[in-house]
Design a protein around this nucleic acid. Sequence first.
DNA 1: TGTAAAATGTTGCAAATGCAACAAAATAAA
DNA 2: TTTATTTTGTTGCATTTGCAACATTTTACA
Lengths: 209, 209
Amino acid sequence: MTNLFENINDKNIEKLKRILKANTIKYPKNVNILSNVKRDDFIALVDTGTVQLERSDYDGNTTIIDTISQGEIFGSLTSSIKNEEVSCITKEETQITFIEYNQITNDEIIKTDSYILFIKNLIKLLSEQVSIKNSRIELLTQKTTRDKLLEYFKLQAGPIRNKSFTIPITFTELANYLSVDRSAMTREINYLKEEGFIKTNGRKITLLY
Amino acid sequence: MTNLFENINDKNIEKLKRILKANTIKYPKNVNILSNVKRDDFIALVDTGTVQLERSDYDGNTTIIDTISQGEIFGSLTSSIKNEEVSCITKEETQITFIEYNQITNDEIIKTDSYILFIKNLIKLLSEQVSIKNSRIELLTQKTTRDKLLEYFKLQAGPIRNKSFTIPITFTELANYLSVDRSAMTREINYLKEEGFIKTNGRKITLLY
DNA sequence: TGTAAAATGTTGCAAATGCAACAAAATAAA
DNA sequence: TTTATTTTGTTGCATTTGCAACATTTTACA
């Protein structure tokens, strides 16, 4: 995962942030951060912590559209956060740096030495975001819960196909990520165990195929 | 939808393409274009036509991961096209311009007048890609076929909430996009009609609520 | 350390959905 | 225009899944 300021030294990072008029804000846990920022188009970098984009349906159900972790970016151009049904909630204490979209090409910044590096990082970061979305779409388009699980396990096993790995989120979160009922997912995991496809120990999964 | 060369005149577009070492190739219908390009990281711009990223499962089923239309971009950083299960197929005669990722910040290009405009367009285009993915994820995370359809109709109706609109794809493609069985989707549309939620006439949908 | 909150495990049941297997209509191609 | 291909429509049936309603375990935090 690329860092927005990768290969740029601290002094130049400070300079870039100043010229970009970057605005860094610290939020406590469980607050909606977008009441502040529904003005111009912006890019938000999660310095530390986690935020979630959630949609509350008419019937009170909450769907997690996106989880943005440390180092990742989101923004008004990439999310439907101007939609009144969508809220952006901090899941822990979180620090965010806001950069207005129009500042990214302001007159002063384009003369700055580390600008090209910054731009290259930003493009890579955005590309990675698209890639992350594509992965989730690949999971979500699987027809059955079993297929979703097996595809998720395959991704977690990585290109080297490790037989054992520990999933980095809770099963509750995984069910949400795969958009399936948690209890039905547990049931399916049990079937997979009974049929000898996998072994589990807490969040550690071992593939037997 | 942003165009990669928006606000840049033809002469400067040619100049940019030359300095970026952009490579424009024309393909006939129904060919796999990625046999050519599995080398360095690249960005591909669809000048004209349509390409689809498809994954063929072990059981022969084909899932459409992504449809890239005229003016949109895709690439090795945004898609799992290096995965051997994924192929990239032209759906009609298609012209594509390839730009190597490393050329985007080459020594000569960053001195070019229209470079900043180009970069800004590229960032906007990538942001829009993320946004498009988010929309689809919002649809795919709906629990029922009915909810998927109603959410899709809501998106098609637009922010002004037009009561009538014509869906821009076939029902077969829509079922694929929503990742539901086509016949089951037809059945659900019939229920929606019977219950007085919608009227249809071919691909024209009228919302009655 | 004790208590509250979150995560996990389990199961019956009704509802939703995929699948198969067609026929018919509409488009595209030769 | 004729033929081939794609899209659309329909339905029975088995399976999958969501949902509700719990008990239990683990984790967070005051």
